[in-house]
Amino acid sequence: MNQSKTMEAADRRFGWFMSAPSLALLLAVILFPVFWALFTSVHDYTLIAPNFDTFTGAENYISAIQDPAFRHSLGLTAFFVAAVVLFEFLLGFIVALMLNSVERFKPIYYGILLCPLLMNPVIVGLIWRMFLHPSLGIVNYLLTVVGFEPVNWLGSTQMAIWTIIMVDIWHQVSFMIVLLLAGLSAMPKEPYEAARVDGARVYQSFFYITLPLMMPVIIVTLLIRMIFAVKTYDLIYIMTRGGPGVATDLVSYSIYRTAFVSLNVGEASAMSAILLGFILLLTVYLYRYMRSLT
Protein backbone atom coordinates (compact mmCIF):
# COMPACT_ATOMS: atom_id res chain seq x y z
CA MET A 1 0.00 0.00 0.00
CA ASN A 2 2.60 2.45 1.18
CA GLN A 3 5.05 1.27 -1.41
CA SER A 4 2.57 1.56 -4.25
CA LYS A 5 1.86 5.09 -3.12
CA THR A 6 5.51 6.11 -3.28
CA MET A 7 5.85 4.41 -6.61
CA GLU A 8 2.87 6.30 -7.89
CA ALA A 9 4.39 9.55 -6.68
CA ALA A 10 7.67 8.63 -8.32
CA ASP A 11 5.83 7.87 -11.54
CA ARG A 12 4.11 11.21 -11.39
CA ARG A 13 7.37 12.99 -10.74
CA PHE A 14 8.90 11.20 -13.69
CA GLY A 15 5.93 12.22 -15.82
CA TRP A 16 6.39 15.88 -14.88
CA PHE A 17 10.09 15.54 -15.49
CA MET A 18 9.54 14.13 -18.96
CA SER A 19 6.91 16.68 -20.00
CA ALA A 20 8.65 19.68 -18.45
CA PRO A 21 10.71 20.60 -21.53
CA SER A 22 7.71 20.60 -23.86
CA LEU A 23 5.58 22.44 -21.28
CA ALA A 24 8.28 25.05 -20.90
CA LEU A 25 8.55 25.38 -24.65
CA LEU A 26 4.78 25.73 -24.95
CA LEU A 27 4.81 28.37 -22.25
CA ALA A 28 7.61 30.25 -23.96
CA VAL A 29 6.30 30.22 -27.51
CA ILE A 30 2.54 30.48 -26.95
CA LEU A 31 1.60 31.79 -23.54
CA PHE A 32 4.37 34.34 -23.26
CA PRO A 33 3.53 36.20 -26.50
CA VAL A 34 -0.18 36.11 -25.67
CA PHE A 35 0.38 37.59 -22.24
CA TRP A 36 2.86 40.07 -23.62
CA ALA A 37 0.26 41.23 -26.13
CA LEU A 38 -2.43 41.51 -23.45
CA PHE A 39 -0.05 43.42 -21.21
CA THR A 40 0.90 45.72 -24.08
CA SER A 41 -2.73 46.34 -24.94
CA VAL A 42 -3.33 48.18 -21.66
CA HIS A 43 -0.27 50.40 -22.04
CA ASP A 44 0.70 53.30 -24.25
CA TYR A 45 3.39 51.28 -26.00
CA THR A 46 4.64 52.58 -29.34
CA LEU A 47 7.67 51.75 -31.45
CA ILE A 48 8.86 55.34 -30.92
CA ALA A 49 8.71 54.90 -27.18
CA PRO A 50 8.81 51.16 -26.55
CA ASN A 51 8.18 51.10 -22.81
CA PHE A 52 5.43 50.27 -20.37
CA ASP A 53 5.61 53.58 -18.50
CA THR A 54 2.05 54.65 -19.15
CA PHE A 55 -0.78 52.40 -18.05
CA THR A 56 -3.86 53.28 -20.08
CA GLY A 57 -6.37 50.64 -19.01
CA ALA A 58 -9.13 50.10 -21.53
CA GLU A 59 -8.23 53.20 -23.56
CA ASN A 60 -6.70 51.26 -26.45
CA TYR A 61 -9.75 49.01 -26.56
CA ILE A 62 -12.16 51.92 -26.53
CA SER A 63 -10.36 53.82 -29.27
CA ALA A 64 -10.18 50.64 -31.38
CA ILE A 65 -13.90 49.97 -31.02
CA GLN A 66 -14.77 53.62 -31.63
CA ASP A 67 -12.67 53.66 -34.81
CA PRO A 68 -15.13 53.23 -37.71
CA ALA A 69 -12.31 51.92 -39.93
CA PHE A 70 -11.62 49.09 -37.47
CA ARG A 71 -15.32 48.24 -37.19
CA HIS A 72 -15.57 48.24 -40.97
CA SER A 73 -12.56 45.90 -41.11
CA LEU A 74 -14.15 43.54 -38.59
CA GLY A 75 -17.41 43.38 -40.54
CA LEU A 76 -15.64 42.95 -43.84
CA THR A 77 -13.49 40.20 -42.37
CA ALA A 78 -16.57 38.38 -41.08
CA PHE A 79 -18.05 38.52 -44.57
CA PHE A 80 -14.77 37.44 -46.16
CA VAL A 81 -14.30 34.52 -43.77
CA ALA A 82 -17.88 33.35 -44.21
CA ALA A 83 -17.59 33.53 -47.98
CA VAL A 84 -14.24 31.78 -48.40
CA VAL A 85 -15.00 29.09 -45.86
CA LEU A 86 -18.42 28.39 -47.34
CA PHE A 87 -17.28 28.28 -50.95
CA GLU A 88 -14.09 26.39 -50.17
CA PHE A 89 -16.09 23.89 -48.16
CA LEU A 90 -18.68 23.30 -50.86
CA LEU A 91 -16.12 23.09 -53.64
CA GLY A 92 -13.70 21.10 -51.49
CA PHE A 93 -16.35 18.60 -50.47
CA ILE A 94 -17.47 18.03 -54.04
CA VAL A 95 -13.90 17.48 -55.22
CA ALA A 96 -13.12 15.29 -52.20
CA LEU A 97 -16.19 13.14 -52.92
CA MET A 98 -15.12 12.77 -56.54
CA LEU A 99 -11.54 11.97 -55.62
CA ASN A 100 -12.68 9.48 -53.01
CA SER A 101 -14.22 7.31 -55.70
CA VAL A 102 -11.19 7.58 -57.96
CA GLU A 103 -9.11 4.40 -58.03
CA ARG A 104 -6.19 5.22 -60.29
CA PHE A 105 -3.62 8.04 -60.43
CA LYS A 106 -4.57 9.22 -56.95
CA PRO A 107 -1.03 10.41 -56.14
CA ILE A 108 -1.02 12.50 -59.32
CA TYR A 109 -4.26 14.26 -58.41
CA TYR A 110 -2.95 14.81 -54.89
CA GLY A 111 0.24 16.31 -56.27
CA ILE A 112 -1.59 18.71 -58.57
CA LEU A 113 -3.98 19.73 -55.82
CA LEU A 114 -1.27 20.38 -53.30
CA CYS A 115 0.67 22.69 -55.63
CA PRO A 116 -1.22 25.92 -54.82
CA LEU A 117 -1.24 25.06 -51.12
CA LEU A 118 2.54 24.76 -51.06
CA MET A 119 2.99 28.15 -52.68
CA ASN A 120 3.83 31.16 -50.60
CA PRO A 121 0.82 33.51 -50.42
CA VAL A 122 3.04 36.36 -51.55
CA ILE A 123 3.83 34.46 -54.74
CA VAL A 124 0.16 33.62 -55.19
CA GLY A 125 -0.74 37.28 -54.85
CA LEU A 126 1.90 38.38 -57.33
CA ILE A 127 0.93 35.75 -59.89
CA TRP A 128 -2.73 36.63 -59.70
CA ARG A 129 -2.06 40.35 -59.82
CA MET A 130 -0.28 39.63 -63.06
CA PHE A 131 -3.03 37.37 -64.42
CA LEU A 132 -5.72 39.86 -63.42
CA HIS A 133 -4.07 42.96 -64.89
CA PRO A 134 -7.10 44.63 -66.52
CA SER A 135 -5.50 45.35 -69.88
CA LEU A 136 -2.34 43.19 -69.99
CA GLY A 137 -3.45 40.15 -67.94
CA ILE A 138 -4.31 36.77 -69.39
CA VAL A 139 -7.70 36.47 -67.67
CA ASN A 140 -9.21 39.53 -69.31
CA TYR A 141 -7.56 38.58 -72.59
CA LEU A 142 -9.30 35.19 -72.52
CA LEU A 143 -12.58 36.85 -71.55
CA THR A 144 -12.43 39.20 -74.52
CA VAL A 145 -11.50 36.30 -76.82
CA VAL A 146 -14.78 34.59 -75.96
CA GLY A 147 -16.66 37.86 -76.27
CA PHE A 148 -16.99 39.14 -72.71
CA GLU A 149 -16.25 42.65 -71.52
CA PRO A 150 -12.95 42.92 -69.60
CA VAL A 151 -13.53 42.87 -65.84
CA ASN A 152 -12.06 45.45 -63.48
CA TRP A 153 -10.88 42.77 -61.06
CA LEU A 154 -9.07 44.79 -58.41
CA GLY A 155 -9.94 48.37 -59.35
CA SER A 156 -13.66 48.25 -58.63
CA THR A 157 -14.97 48.50 -55.08
CA GLN A 158 -17.71 45.97 -55.79
CA MET A 159 -15.45 43.44 -57.49
CA ALA A 160 -12.20 43.64 -55.49
CA ILE A 161 -13.34 41.69 -52.43
CA TRP A 162 -14.76 38.95 -54.65
CA THR A 163 -11.51 38.80 -56.56
CA ILE A 164 -9.63 38.34 -53.29
CA ILE A 165 -12.15 35.67 -52.29
CA MET A 166 -11.65 33.84 -55.58
CA VAL A 167 -7.86 33.93 -55.31
CA ASP A 168 -8.06 32.72 -51.73
CA ILE A 169 -10.30 29.87 -52.85
CA TRP A 170 -7.82 28.96 -55.57
CA HIS A 171 -5.03 29.00 -53.03
CA GLN A 172 -6.67 27.30 -50.09
CA VAL A 173 -9.35 24.97 -51.40
CA SER A 174 -6.87 22.09 -51.51
CA PHE A 175 -6.56 22.34 -47.77
CA MET A 176 -10.26 21.53 -47.48
CA ILE A 177 -10.01 18.81 -50.09
CA VAL A 178 -7.12 17.08 -48.38
CA LEU A 179 -8.67 17.18 -44.92
CA LEU A 180 -12.13 16.14 -46.09
CA LEU A 181 -10.63 13.42 -48.26
CA ALA A 182 -8.75 12.07 -45.26
CA GLY A 183 -12.07 11.99 -43.40
CA LEU A 184 -13.88 10.33 -46.26
CA SER A 185 -11.29 7.62 -46.76
CA ALA A 186 -11.42 6.81 -43.05
CA MET A 187 -15.19 6.22 -43.28
CA PRO A 188 -16.43 2.64 -42.80
CA LYS A 189 -17.63 1.10 -46.06
CA GLU A 190 -20.23 -1.23 -44.60
CA PRO A 191 -22.95 1.26 -43.62
CA TYR A 192 -23.11 2.34 -47.27
CA GLU A 193 -23.76 -1.21 -48.42
CA ALA A 194 -26.33 -1.65 -45.69
CA ALA A 195 -27.97 1.58 -46.81
CA ARG A 196 -28.00 0.52 -50.46
CA VAL A 197 -29.77 -2.68 -49.53
CA ASP A 198 -32.04 -0.71 -47.21
CA GLY A 199 -33.12 1.22 -50.29
CA ALA A 200 -31.00 4.39 -50.19
CA ARG A 201 -30.17 6.17 -53.44
CA VAL A 202 -26.76 7.80 -53.83
CA TYR A 203 -28.00 11.21 -52.66
CA GLN A 204 -29.82 9.64 -49.71
CA SER A 205 -26.64 7.81 -48.68
CA PHE A 206 -24.88 11.14 -48.82
CA PHE A 207 -27.35 13.00 -46.67
CA TYR A 208 -28.17 10.22 -44.21
CA ILE A 209 -24.78 8.51 -43.88
CA THR A 210 -21.87 10.55 -45.23
CA LEU A 211 -22.85 13.94 -43.91
CA PRO A 212 -23.67 12.94 -40.33
CA LEU A 213 -20.63 10.65 -40.07
CA MET A 214 -18.35 13.33 -41.50
CA MET A 215 -19.69 16.05 -39.20
CA PRO A 216 -16.83 16.02 -36.69
CA VAL A 217 -14.24 16.15 -39.48
CA ILE A 218 -16.19 18.90 -41.22
CA ILE A 219 -16.39 21.02 -38.11
CA VAL A 220 -12.70 20.72 -37.34
CA THR A 221 -11.86 21.55 -40.95
CA LEU A 222 -14.16 24.57 -40.99
CA LEU A 223 -12.78 25.77 -37.70
CA ILE A 224 -9.14 25.55 -38.77
CA ARG A 225 -9.92 27.19 -42.09
CA MET A 226 -11.89 29.99 -40.40
CA ILE A 227 -9.05 30.76 -38.04
CA PHE A 228 -6.60 30.85 -40.95
CA ALA A 229 -8.97 32.98 -43.02
CA VAL A 230 -9.28 35.56 -40.24
CA LYS A 231 -5.51 35.92 -40.41
CA THR A 232 -5.49 36.60 -44.17
CA TYR A 233 -2.97 39.33 -44.63
CA ASP A 234 -0.43 38.50 -47.34
CA LEU A 235 -2.94 38.46 -50.19
CA ILE A 236 -4.27 41.87 -49.21
CA TYR A 237 -0.81 43.29 -48.77
CA ILE A 238 0.28 42.12 -52.20
CA MET A 239 -2.92 42.55 -54.19
CA THR A 240 -4.83 45.61 -52.97
CA ARG A 241 -3.36 47.14 -49.80
CA GLY A 242 -6.94 47.24 -48.57
CA GLY A 243 -8.21 49.23 -51.54
CA PRO A 244 -9.76 50.45 -53.67
CA GLY A 245 -11.06 52.78 -50.98
CA VAL A 246 -11.51 50.45 -48.03
CA ALA A 247 -13.13 47.66 -50.06
CA THR A 248 -10.66 44.95 -49.05
CA ASP A 249 -9.36 46.31 -45.77
CA LEU A 250 -9.33 43.05 -43.78
CA VAL A 251 -8.74 43.24 -40.06
CA SER A 252 -5.32 41.54 -39.99
CA TYR A 253 -3.95 44.06 -42.47
CA SER A 254 -5.50 46.85 -40.46
CA ILE A 255 -3.84 45.57 -37.28
CA TYR A 256 -0.53 45.29 -39.10
CA ARG A 257 -0.78 48.92 -40.16
CA THR A 258 -1.65 50.07 -36.68
CA ALA A 259 1.44 48.32 -35.33
CA PHE A 260 4.02 48.96 -38.04
CA VAL A 261 2.83 52.09 -39.85
CA SER A 262 1.19 53.97 -37.01
CA LEU A 263 3.78 52.38 -34.70
CA ASN A 264 1.02 52.06 -32.10
CA VAL A 265 1.72 48.57 -30.76
CA GLY A 266 -0.55 49.11 -27.77
CA GLU A 267 -3.68 49.72 -29.83
CA ALA A 268 -2.70 47.00 -32.30
CA SER A 269 -2.47 44.58 -29.37
CA ALA A 270 -5.91 45.67 -28.21
CA MET A 271 -7.30 45.04 -31.69
CA SER A 272 -5.64 41.60 -31.71
CA ALA A 273 -7.16 40.83 -28.34
CA ILE A 274 -10.62 41.76 -29.60
CA LEU A 275 -10.08 39.51 -32.61
CA LEU A 276 -8.80 36.73 -30.38
CA GLY A 277 -11.97 37.05 -28.33
CA PHE A 278 -14.16 36.52 -31.39
CA ILE A 279 -12.12 33.53 -32.54
CA LEU A 280 -12.24 31.98 -29.08
CA LEU A 281 -16.02 32.36 -28.90
CA LEU A 282 -16.39 30.71 -32.28
CA THR A 283 -14.02 27.90 -31.33
CA VAL A 284 -15.81 27.19 -28.07
CA TYR A 285 -19.18 27.16 -29.81
CA LEU A 286 -18.05 24.78 -32.56
CA TYR A 287 -16.15 22.57 -30.15
CA ARG A 288 -19.24 22.22 -27.97
CA TYR A 289 -21.35 21.44 -31.01
CA MET A 290 -18.88 18.77 -32.06
CA ARG A 291 -18.86 17.25 -28.57
CA SER A 292 -22.65 17.05 -28.69
CA LEU A 293 -22.42 14.93 -31.82
CA THR A 294 -20.35 12.13 -30.36
Binding site: T157, G243, G245, V246, A247, R257, V261, S262
Partner: peptide, 22 residues
Protein backbone atom coordinates in the same frame (compact mmCIF):
# COMPACT_ATOMS: atom_id res chain seq x y z
CA UNK B 1 7.75 61.11 -37.14
CA UNK B 2 4.41 60.05 -38.55
CA UNK B 3 5.17 60.26 -42.29
CA UNK B 4 4.25 56.57 -42.89
CA UNK B 5 0.94 57.05 -41.10
CA UNK B 6 0.16 60.18 -43.08
CA UNK B 7 0.85 58.25 -46.29
CA UNK B 8 -1.49 55.53 -45.05
CA UNK B 9 -4.34 57.94 -44.25
CA UNK B 10 -3.82 59.92 -47.44
CA UNK B 11 -3.75 56.74 -49.52
CA UNK B 12 -6.95 55.46 -47.96
CA UNK B 13 -8.91 58.68 -48.37
CA UNK B 14 -7.70 59.33 -51.93
CA UNK B 15 -8.63 55.76 -52.86
CA UNK B 16 -12.10 56.25 -51.34
CA UNK B 17 -12.59 59.44 -53.36
CA UNK B 18 -11.45 57.76 -56.59
CA UNK B 19 -13.87 54.90 -55.89
CA UNK B 20 -16.66 57.49 -55.47
CA UNK B 21 -17.23 56.47 -51.86
CA UNK B 22 -16.32 59.93 -50.54
Amino acid sequence: TYTPQLVEVLGRELSLAVADEA
